[in-house]
């Protein structure tokens, strides 16, 4: 098969991969913030709930979670299509790791910031969202960037439940043709480029969020 044909088949698969990332990323982010905040809640039950979610999803791997959601849930009468299973499994999995990032980021903000916010009579909610969170976000960005890359990589697992993503197409092409070096070489480059683009985007976001903040010094 000519290289440009291989390229266009793979590019279509890359589009599917990008769509998966675009759907799983918001879910992962939401889960990360919800469970990360719950882990700092005053209520023990909520803290436990979040901790169980995090330990559970970090203690097993994305592939097992994916299989469980895709193969086991239908037996409980919850039929779920492959794409949804993939998005849910990856979103919940990466969200559990993100939960730790959110929690750590919030805890890393200097205690003096909360004290100043109390002295200015901000409500607890305002303290969190106006004072602490904007500062914590800056520090969360680099680990979030790493997690976003982990998410891109993890999307390759959905090829094992027959979603025609980049990896799936590569494997079918490889089974069909014998140009395995070109195919897998190209696929690796595709993933690498996606990861680099994502890294640059998140660095830009970090810079934007950290405007004026000279981290490390006393403000």
């Amino acid at each position: 098969m000519p290289l440009n044909e291989i390229f266009s088949v793979l590019a279509e698969g890359a589009l599917v991969t990008i769509q998966l990332v675009a759907m799983a990323l918001p879910l992962a982010t939401a889960m990360a913030f919800i469970s990360g905040l719950l882990r700092l809640s005053e209520h023990r039950a909520l803290r436990w709930l979040a901790a169980i979610y995090v330990e559970f999803f970090r203690g097993t791997s994305a592939l097992i979670q994916l299989y469980w959601i895709y193969f086991v849930l239908p037996f409980f009468g919850i039929s779920i299509d492959a794409i949804t299973a993939g998005v849910v499994a990856l979103g919940l999995n990466i969200g559990a790791y993100g939960s730790e990032v959110v929690r750590g980021g919030l805890l890393s903000v200097d205690r003096g910031q909360t004290e100043a916010a109390i002295a200015l009579n901000f409500s607890p909610r305002q303290r969190l969202w106006r004072i602490i969170m904007p500062q914590a976000l800056v520090g969360m960005m680099p680990p979030f960037g790493n997690l976003a890359i982990e998410l891109v990589k993890a999307t390759s697992l959905v090829s094992l439940i027959t979603i025609a993503d980049l990896t799936y197409r590569a494997k079918s092409l490889a089974d069909m043709t014998l140009q395995v070096e070109e195919i897998f070489g190209l696929v690796l480059v595709f993933y690498f480029v996606m990861a680099q683009v994502l890294t640059l985007a998140i660095r830009a976001l970090e810079k934007h969020l950290g405007k004026g903040m000279d981290r490390g010094g006393l403000a």
Binding site: I149, V152, K153, A154, T155, S156, L157, S159, L160, T167, A170, F184, V187, L188, Y191, F192, A195, Q196, T199
Partner: peptide, 8 residues
């Protein structure tokens, strides 16, 4: 590090 283990 930025490419999937499965593809590797």
């Amino acid at each position: 590090r930025s490419t999937p283990l499965l593809v590797q």
